[in-house]
């Protein structure tokens, strides 16, 4: 009987401990909504996150071992590809769109600019398989991982199984991406009443709330909807966005509203990276909106801003920079 009680105590303590570590692995401000990602189907563990992090930085995922996830999603640029309006792949191929910044992904319902991907776990499959990105396929990736020196052991440590599967590979990559939480910008510290905006930032915040926040909703700075924000169609791409996925004319020219967190470092902007500077973006909203049937209702009334107001707005946007996130060694390359 004593053994029985000890056993129960042991199991209970393990449960307690694992609960506790999960909290350590995934932290977000209490004022935020609950994440959308279902963690019960892919419970976080230190080993799985580390495995995912290794995979994220490993070019083994690409056909000729030249491109890793970080090639287009590097930490110092909030996990996007700066300087390139369109992202690059193997053999110097150029993609159709600008790679999105990666952060706070547990709150996303769909992925990609057009929402083509319905689940974070399946996201990595798209760049792995795209002939102009990594040009590989998941079956061959699993084969290469299984035959590598390090991975069977790492998969065993993470999933208790040294037979590598597509499911485990994708779940591990998800785990690392889920930990990429940015919640410690100056804006966040002002919200926690631990610091104050300057006068200029404070003016900018008012302008932001009056003109931008219905789509870029606080605190995650996106409403996760698809909107047509009045960009002219680039005739060399003819990219109609969400319509490609739904085949519905009312989705023509709609793209996912991106978060504005870390926007200072995630240039160039828009789905095709057409704007290099934040001032270009703001000038687009004040003077560049192209009327069309699917134009967002929120943009039908013209936004008027003086040049001082524009500067104030930018100074607010810069308070969304989270240095702790951008330079956190936990998210960086694993030194072998």
């Amino acid at each position: 009987m004593r053994i029985f009680i000890l056993l129960i105590l042991f199991v209970a303590s393990i449960l307690f401990l694992s609960f506790d570590t999960e909290n350590d692995l995934f932290n977000y401000p209490t004022s935020w909504q609950k994440p959308y990602y279902d963690f019960t189907k892919n419970p976080l563990s230190k080993e799985k996150i580390e495995l995912g992090r290794r995979l994220f930085y490993d070019p083994i995922l690409s056909k000729d071992s030249t491109i890793s996830c970080q090639s287009c999603h590097s930490q110092y640029s909030a996990f996007t590809h700066i300087d390139h309006s369109l992202s690059h792949g193997i053999n110097d191929s150029i993609g159709l769109r600008n790679s999105p910044a990666l952060m706070n992904l547990a709150w996303n319902k769909s992925f990609m600019w057009d929402g083509a991907i319905n689940h974070l776990d399946m996201q990595a499959l798209a760049p792995i398989s795209n002939p102009i990105e990594m040009g590989e396929n998941i079956t061959n990736v699993v084969y290469k991982l299984q035959n590598s020196k390090i991975y069977p052991k790492l998969f065993y440590n993470a999933f208790n199984d040294s037979i590598i599967t597509g499911e485990h590979t994708l779940k591990a990559i998800s785990q690392f991406m889920l930990t990429l939480i940015s919640s410690n910008s100056k804006y966040d510290s002002v919200m926690r009443e631990q610091s104050d905006f300057t006068q200029q930032e404070s003016n900018g915040y008012k302008i932001f709330k009056a003109n931008c926040s219905t789509c870029h909703t606080e605190p995650l700075f996106t409403n996760y909807e698809f909107e047509n924000n009045g960009l002219k169609v680039d005739p060399s791409h003819n990219d109609y966005g969400r319509m490609r996925i739904t085949s519905k004319s009312y989705d023509s020219l709609k793209f996912k509203v991106p978060t504005l967190r870390n926007i200072e470092f995630s240039y160039p902007y828009m789905h095709d990276g057409r704007f290099k500077r934040l001032s270009d973006v703001i000038n687009h909203y004040t003077n560049g909106i192209e009327e069309s049937e699917t134009l967002s209702k929120k943009l039908k009334t013209k936004i008027n801003l003086t040049s001082n107001e524009k500067v104030d707005l930018i100074s607010f946007l810069l308070t969304l920079t989270d240095k702790e996130f951008l330079f956190n060694p936990k998210f960086g390359y694993i030194k072998k």
Binding site: N42, L125, I138, E167
Partner: peptide
């Protein structure tokens, strides 16, 4: 999301 067994995406029956 990612599923195993016959539903594993390595089976070549999943659009990417």
């Amino acid at each position: 999301g990612a599923l195993g067994g016959d539903l594993d995406p390595t089976k070549g029956m999943y659009w990417t």
